[in-house]
């Protein structure tokens, strides 16, 4: 799991152009949106693309992603749970 979390951190920094951050700056339990990393609606759409391209997982609507995209940890759990189905 920790490995997945670290991988996700790197992918998110890359995908969302968070160049001023390094993986160790990100707390995997902190909320991704508003507080925490302060991501916005375009970022959430971009995370949907990331899940689809890198993990083959589909989230149809941004609203459905709310729980998944709560934190890096919740994303990792979602990937872990669904990828081996």
């Amino acid at each position: 799991m920790q490995e997945l979390i670290n991988k996700l951190k790197k992918e998110i920094i890359e995908q969302l152009n968070l160049q001023d951050l390094s993986p160790s700056d990100i707390d995997e339990n902190a909320p991704l949106f508003v507080e925490g990393l302060g991501l916005d609606s375009i970022d959430s759409l971009e995370l949907i693309v990331l899940l689809q391209r890198n993990y083959g997982l589909k989230i149809a609507k941004a609203e459905e992603g709310r729980e998944v995209f709560h934190s890096i940890k919740s994303m990792a759990e979602f990937i872990h749970k669904n990828q081996n189905k």
Binding site: Q15, L16, N17, I42, D43, L45, E46, V49, Q52, R53
Partner: peptide, 9 residues
């Protein structure tokens, strides 16, 4: 085919 919303904007 993975259109990027962050680029599209």
């Amino acid at each position: 085919f993975f259109p990027s919303p962050a680029i599209f904007v």
